[in-house]
Design a protein around this nucleic acid. Sequence first.
DNA 1: GTAGTAAGTTCAGTCATTGAACTTAAGGTG
DNA 2: CACCTTAAGTTCAATGACTGAACTTACTAC
Lengths: 158, 158
Amino acid sequence: MRCSLGRALDVIGDWWSPLIIRDLFLGIGRFDELVEDLGISRNLLTRRLNLLAEAGVIERQAYQLRPRRWEYRLTAKGRDLVPALLALTEWGNRWAAPEEGPPMLFVHTGCGGPVTPTVVCSECGRPLQADEIRAVAGPGGAAGPGTRVLARRLTLPH
Amino acid sequence: MRCSLGRALDVIGDWWSPLIIRDLFLGIGRFDELVEDLGISRNLLTRRLNLLAEAGVIERQAYQLRPRRWEYRLTAKGRDLVPALLALTEWGNRWAAPEEGPPMLFVHTGCGGPVTPTVVCSECGRPLQADEIRAVAGPGGAAGPGTRVLARRLTLPH
DNA sequence: GTAGTAAGTTCAGTCATTGAACTTAAGGTG
DNA sequence: CACCTTAAGTTCAATGACTGAACTTACTAC
């Protein structure tokens, strides 16, 4: 698929991958811990971990030899995914938090304060809102699955 | 599932929903257009649209009577999801863009400039990085699927 | 009255996911 | 030495989700 959202979803577009990445981010990195924390079935976790490793988002490291025991951790590419997942989490907090309040909060060690992850425009720094954003065709713009109708819309008018 | 990421994924945790929401955001709102643009099968699109509508993320509106024809559009809850999806798209641009460059760019009508969606700390305004964020238990913190191991980690140490 | 369009529904086949049991390679206990 | 335990998987049957193609309905235009 040509669009960058589609390419991101190729990596984390299933139900479990974002949760696996969140758990690795939080320091839960061993196979049985992930099974217990998420309730994912073992064979599926095996496949997901392999796919995420192939995609370069996570890597496997031995934390002990004899017997060899493994731990999974985020790569730079995977760590860079965390802010985007936090933005999604924040949406969940705003629109679908349980009555008691969010089960988890985040602290920014840079400033010491509680974080409300916010997606802003890198140019002007203001929070992004859907109605203030217009899409235009980029350099790699072409029609393909995921942009068949879109390609016509982006190039024709204006 | 108790965590807010899990709750967000309950709504958009499959492969198609984020793409559907992106298309609605870009003005592609009719059934056959969505089928053509995404290449999704018709029966699945029907189900996804119904689920997203049930979740309050999209709504159906007639754009013509006799014969009745429908159009789907984002609700406020759905529009609020767009910045988070843009953050994900931006990750796709950084780590998985095609050689020719990203197929689509965004312009911020507020400042007129090209947008690079960035996730920042709402307190200090600095871009979030995985290694500068610490998780702490929130008011609704309890052990359940998705936080079984986590609950022990968050409350016990420190 | 024949063709076309938009928005679906129906159905057979395939593929993904679940849940439970089993495997492998060690280490520790009596 | 025999037995139990742990971590990290693998294997397998059953169920559920998704795909692709054909069909349906309600209308308009020629």
